[in-house]
């Protein structure tokens, strides 16, 4: 039973009007694995995340998390089970100090259950988490307003927000977007550590080179359909994938 999938998706479909943003998608994910979801713009990556985390209700199909049917679950219940997501557009509470931003997830039912802690203790936990994602404790940055943070730090804050909920499955929606090469380089060890700690990772990304350093398995989406699945190195050689990414003419002439 050790390899029972943590996430199993069966025939997941979501249509907006006539448009199918997710079309009969099925896959499985083993605990501790890191999955990458890639595909061109508008291929349904974010919809897939929204479906898994309950922000969007599917038209058809089922989602199982640790064997439990969670299809159409309310977002907060998904978090309660251990599914945590980041947002593509990280919108922190700008008028709050950075560490206070973490008080909100830290006082959620899930965090209270696993961490306990009273009003005040959470401040210390928040600073700890910020250190973990690369904020320097002595730099005063954690005490500044979140509105003053540069983009790279906002992404780290978003990551700290997710980690504060002690996720079993962490879903990152374009974490690398807008980050510089050096910022990405400094975040990768952190992601590897999260993975080592046994957290299942799901990453939607456009930055493939960096993504492939972390993930074990990749799924390629195009027009809401899963067109490929497998090891990153194998998948990228498939013709369908190259067509989706580069356009069919380029592939044929090559």
């Amino acid at each position: 039973m050790a390899n029972e999938p943590i996430l199993r998706i069966v025939g997941l479909t979501k249509s907006f009007g006539g448009e199918k943003a997710a079309d009969n998608i099925s896959f499985e994910l083993v605990p501790g694995q890191a999955l990458g979801i890639i595909g061109p713009n508008g291929s349904g990556k974010s919809t897939l995340i929204n479906l898994i985390t309950g922000f969007v209700k599917p038209t058809a199909g089922q989602i199982f998390f640790k064997g439990k049917n969670i299809t159409g679950i309310a977002p907060h219940k998904a978090v309660d089970l251990g599914i945590t997501r980041s947002f593509q557009m990280s919108r922190p509470f700008y008028n709050l100090p950075v560490f206070k931003n973490l008080i909100i997830p830290l006082s959620s039912p899930r965090a209270r259950r696993s961490r306990g802690g009273k009003y005040g203790d959470r401040d210390e936990t928040a600073i700890h988490l910020l250190e973990e994602v690369g904020f320097e404790r002595d730099s005063q940055v954690p005490y500044k307003d979140a509105g003053a943070l540069p983009h790279g730090y906002l992404k780290r804050l978003e990551l700290a927000r997710c980690l504060s909920l002690e996720p079993e499955m962490l879903i990152l929606d374009e974490l690398f977007s807008g980050m510089s090469m050096s910022e990405i380089a400094s975040v990768i060890p952190l992601l590897e550590k999260i993975k080592e700690d046994g957290c299942t990772l799901v990453m939607v990304e456009h930055r493939l080179t960096e993504l492939f350093r972390i993930i074990d398995k990749v799924i390629v989406l195009n027009f809401g359909q899963k067109i490929a699945e497998g090891k990153p190195s194998d998948v990228m050689k498939q013709e369908a994938v190259m067509k989706a990414y580069l356009g069919s003419e380029v592939v044929e002439s090559a």
């Binding site: 978090v79 309660d80 945590t84 997501r85 947002f87 919108r91 922190p92 509470f93 909100i104 039912p109």
Partner: peptide, 13 residues
């Protein structure tokens, strides 16, 4: 300020 973030933090808003 941002109800989606609160939902994503595990609160029933």
């Amino acid at each position: 300020d941002n109800d989606r973030a609160v939902m994503a933090a595990g609160f029933d808003i």
